[in-house]
Design a protein around this nucleic acid. Structure first.
Lengths: 333, 333
DNA sequence: CTGAAAGCGCTTACAG
DNA sequence: CTGAAAGCGCTTACAG
């Protein structure tokens, strides 16, 4: 048996029609017991496995969900991927993952492919025409774009940033640096708004350095911070990676954290609590986010989905929380 | 135009047969210029996108490669995923990623699915029957299993571990701890063999604690190490995560690294050089590994592939290297 | 309960 | 250069 057996081979061996084999496999109740057993034996004997490509075409669904993320090597995503996969797998679906920066044409195709029937989108910077052109159930996770006509799920970034600022205010910090993310990124933007707004309410003098979420950006910001004459006593970084870079560079320059400067991150990546000092940060429940997004998109896949994608519904917010660790302390005077 | 246009719609609009549309799209040279232009216009007008599920079925190939890894949330894999994706994308292929621990049945199906035509396998602990049953080009990356009948790619783990030990020997360490990985894991096993072998050659007294690559395991090992009466002056951990956990716990217990104990990791994950102290480790060129694996499997997909999968060829080794950073120093006396 | 037949949306010899 | 027709491997009304 070199070639892969197909349903016809099973049917022949069992002495029934292919229709019966198909039924015996998908809806066993609908087939006579004796027949069913013959079929099952033939399946075992031939080593038959269904050809999903054929099934997909015929049923016009792929039993697969596609995750699109702007950078597969970003460790922030890994737990989300794992959670989506788990949820999908439990529902009998496979998962495809693709970088969302693969070019307009390729991207467009992905949604028209016939190989996925739901999308979890982690990128808010794609061309809305492309995204809205896909006629597939879609959910925006973490990042979003108001021009996308699809529900979205994530934390309330503005409020979460507020948590960080209030924490620093409570520790007595009166001048705080924010190392921001890319200017065109919604997450960066809303976190910065949360920072500025809450700083104003809390009587904190805000300083903002641009960044891009990376460790290098954090390190660069630290060097810039060090040169300031009247240095902020605390820094709120738009991502944990940035915060780790900031701290690491501060220590290399001879400063102490939190002695000379308190640092708060954002995300609560796996290393945050093992860093030295362990990192005070805003926890994003990445596993829950992945799970909920998968659940949601799976539910949408089941629904009729005739009409245009869901109304501009309010975002589904999951709770973010401040995790106090060792990188923040009282303001020195 | 609510429903997705199909090739028939384009053909009708252009006033040609579906065969011609198909040709105009896949082999434009084979179609008359005028016809080609009519078709292209119709494609644009209808917004036609090829249905990949149908193409795949007809052509009996999926233009897709499947990555199988034992734990999607392990950050060690992220860069590999990204590299495979890049390479695949450049070749016009899509990428599917799945956890390899999804259960025997599901796993078996993946390879028979008709939805992937090449596999990059990062798990050496799957049932060889399952793996060898897949009739798809396959390459083993990083982890491997001699019972898999497929070529493999990765670093020479034994030699790489030797690098770490010799580095410590050169620093004057005479008693070294190895925190190992899971006993049933090839990587853990070969790294441990490299450790033991080189220790013997270098006149180093070896101590081995079992572990499982995680930060928790590293932290646990550190606590155990602290209780030893005659403590090793250095620790070689089987993974960076483990090393970071080890260091972090040592510092929490009041020890200094490398003052009281030098620590070497394995992998060179992104955080290694920003950790405090920055981590001396063995660098695995993950990007190159991903890229090479993808190249290789793509090449195999092109080949005839009639005969049984490649002979027990020698593994393709990529170079690992010691990266000296701040977590190791001279043995104290 | 079971089978013959149509069809999912493509591609590709085969003719012309 | 172009079209009619078969077929990739399934599923599912429709009859019986």
């Amino acid at each position: 048996m070199r070639a892969r057996p197909k349903i016809k081979d099973v049917a022949t061996l069992a002495g029934v029609s292919t229709a019966t084999v198909s039924r015996a496999l998908s809806t066993p109740e609908s087939v006579g017991l004796a027949t069913r057993e013959k079929v099952m034996e033939a399946v075992k004997a031939t080593g038959y496995r269904i050809n999903a490509a054929a099934r997909d075409l015929r049923m016009r669904r792929a039993r697969s969900i596609l995750i699109l993320a702007p950078n597969l090597s970003n460790t922030f995503f890994s737990r989300i991927f794992a959670a989506v996969q788990e949820e999908a797998s439990a529902a009998g679906l496979t998962v495809q993952i693709s970088d969302s920066r693969i070019g307009r044409e390729r991207l467009l195709s992905l949604g028209y492919d016939g190989r996925a029937d739901g999308i979890v989108l982690l990128d808010g910077s794609l061309d809305p025409e492309v995204v809205n052109g896909w006629q597939l159930p879609l959910i925006q996770l973490s990042e979003w774009n108001d021009a996308y006509d699809a529900p979205r799920l994530g934390i309330d970034n503005r409020a979460a940033a507020g948590l960080a600022v209030r924490h620093l205010a409570a520790l007595g910090h009166r001048k705080v640096l924010h190392v921001s993310g890319p200017g065109d990124n919604v997450l960066a933007l809303t976190r910065q708004q949360g920072f500025s707004g809450t700083a104003a309410e809390s009587g904190i003098a805000p300083v903002v350095f641009p960044g891009d979420f990376t460790m290098e950006a954090g390190a660069g910001a630290a060097r810039r911070w060090a040169k300031l004459s009247d240095r902020p006593t605390a820094a709120f970084c738009a991502s944990d990676e940035c915060a780790l870079g900031f701290i690491s560079e501060c220590v290399h320059m001879g400063f102490s954290v939190p002695g000379d400067v308190s640092v708060v991150g954002f995300d609560d990546i796996d290393f945050a609590d093992r860093f030295l000092p362990s990192l005070t940060t805003i926890r994003q429940p990445r596993e829950a986010m992945g799970r909920l997004a998968a659940e949601r998109v799976i539910a949408m896949m089941g629904a009729p989905a005739k009409e245009p994608r869901s109304r501009p519904a309010p975002p589904i917010h999951v709770a973010a929380a401040l995790v106090e660790r060792a990188s923040t302390g009282p303001a020195h005077t």
